[in-house]
């Protein structure tokens, strides 16, 4: 208690504070180093999970996440700030495109999608990556929130091809198309449907360009 001068006390607290900080920062640094690699691996795995839902994992053999094209702002895909297109290949041959797309006219803003399209233009699968639709009303566009687990709403797009199906049919029934939607909640499905239709058309028009570009190239 003798060194209760301001200077003495300040030195003492500063020293103690420094020691503790050094020790616990070291602990954190150590943990970071130890988990670093595992975290990156887990993150990739998570991303692949959604992709696997729209394109089977055994359909391609390239490193999908590394084989992409960077798009600038693209009206057709609703991408105001650009996005990526991943390219699946098996033994070097193209087997599918994975397009990031956005439906800008959801009930509560943007709906981000990932659309898998086969080289012949057929839509292989669609998933919602993120959305803000009203819970319980429009959020059935996300199969995780869809009550119908066996044949979720979004499964309707699988197998559609703009080459064989007239453009008029790429609409919800209320607008005269063939896509079903739930009563009283047509805005969100309408937005998704329109976005998928646009994406399918875009993919058909740009297929060769997208497959041909070098990895990581910006279009």
């Amino acid at each position: 208690m003798s060194q209760s001068t301001i200077l003495g006390l300040s030195t003492r607290t500063a020293g103690a504070m420094m020691a503790f900080t050094a020790a616990f920062t070291a602990l954190m640094a150590f943990t970071y180093e130890a988990t670093h690699a595992q975290i990156a691996a887990s993150a990739n795995e998570e991303k692949m999970k959604l992709i696997t839902e729209v394109l089977a994992a055994n359909a391609y053999d390239n490193s999908l996440l590394d084989d992409y094209v960077q798009l600038g702002p693209t009206r057709e895909l609703g991408l105001d700030h650009g996005g990526r297109v991943y390219r699946a290949r098996k033994a070097g041959a193209p087997v599918g495109l994975l397009l990031e797309a956005t439906a800008p006219d959801g009930y509560s803003g943007d709906i981000d999608l990932i659309v898998a399209i086969l080289p012949d233009g057929t839509v292989n699968g669609v998933r919602v990556v993120s959305h803000r639709e009203t819970p319980g009303l429009g959020d059935y566009i996300d199969p995780k929130k869809d009550k119908d687990k066996k044949s979720p709403w979004i499964g309707q797009f699988s197998g559609l091809n703009p080459a064989t199906l007239p453009l008029d049919a790429w609409k919800v029934k209320k607008d005269g198309g063939q896509i079903n939607s739930h009563a009283g909640a047509t805005i969100s499905p309408r937005a998704v449907t329109n976005a998928v239709a646009r994406a399918a058309r875009y993919a058909a028009a740009n297929r060769d360009r997208l497959f041909g570009a070098a990895t990581g190239a910006s279009l």
Binding site: I6, L9, T11, R12, T13, A14, M17, M18, F20, A22
Partner: peptide
Amino acid sequence: MTAVALVLGALLGYAS
């Protein structure tokens, strides 16, 4: 972190 701790520790001791 250590530098920040040093300053803050001194400050707290002074303030107390």
